[in-house]
Design a binder for these strands. Sequence first.
DNA 1: TTGGAATGTCAACAAGGCTGACGTAAGCTG
DNA 2: CAGCTTACGTCAGCCTTGTTGACATTCCAA
Lengths: 170, 170
Amino acid sequence: MSELRSSASYSGESLLYLTDEQLRQGIEAMFFAYRGFTADPDRILSDLSYGRAHHRAIHFINRAPGTTVNNLLSILGVTKQSLNRVLRTLIEDGLVESRVGQVDKRERHLHLTEKGAALEARLSDAQRARMRAAYRAAGPEAVAGFRQVLEAMMDTELRRAHVRLRDAGQ
Amino acid sequence: MSELRSSASYSGESLLYLTDEQLRQGIEAMFFAYRGFTADPDRILSDLSYGRAHHRAIHFINRAPGTTVNNLLSILGVTKQSLNRVLRTLIEDGLVESRVGQVDKRERHLHLTEKGAALEARLSDAQRARMRAAYRAAGPEAVAGFRQVLEAMMDTELRRAHVRLRDAGQ
DNA sequence: TTGGAATGTCAACAAGGCTGACGTAAGCTG
DNA sequence: CAGCTTACGTCAGCCTTGTTGACATTCCAA
């Protein structure tokens, strides 16, 4: 149970990237990179006494303006109670507007206010700047590979959500 | 402030991957992929009433046996009080052993017990399985690119920690 | 040898997850 | 129309995991 295992199959040296050690390095890289990925927005948010949860809500409301609460819920993968706490403070602070649905009045459609859009831009700019630097440093082929591996790492359900947003964007 | 911006410079069509839209897709891919990345260990852990913090501690203790609390702290990027709570439960549950330093008695050196190593293997296997599937689906060149972008996304300080672990591993 | 620095522990608090229960309004269906 | 379902909000309470502050122990250097 605790002796060295190697579940990678070595059918030639071309599979070096599938050794347990390589996979472990990939896992650690993912861990450290994610920290970097969130570091800049986290700094901005903590000054405003918001957290990552607020960022996520703002991001996806910006991305899909007019989205319903339920829709946002399924994208974020949290409970409505959890989202509601965050959403309430954003609405109180005048960053998000919640409009009763025209056709189905049970629904609330979420939009960023100007103030909300301004914060979104600030967070987004910071995060994109880091992303852009990483992309530039690694080059186009690396970026294509990066995206491929990320896609393959998602759960199918999340991949669908991602694709839907991607196609909506352009 | 809220009109469309494009901070990417278009010096040829080969830089398409640096448009704001492309960067945004990368950001979202990172977000969704990280969810997948942690999903399998999370499931295992919740059955044992442990959390992601326990996983991280176990992972890095396994990776660098005999590491000190302070060392682990700098890798995990949390406060010592936060780590200590997690560490305490792991020690109580007999997964981790804390040995007083021989040369400097202020230090505690951390090791996994057999039980701890068994859990580590279980978590690690699950996470590697997903990683392996993603790597296999994307192929070797994509994996190389993936790693390059992740490296470039880390803070320099974290990159150093990552490299140190990588080189220690092999 | 004594005062400061380093290491680790205990206590208390906050953010943000979770479940469960419940209320209200609106839509849908027999 | 009556009754079920859906969408949303909210209250209460819990857990994990982050934080700061206070403190004990140990080491080292002036």
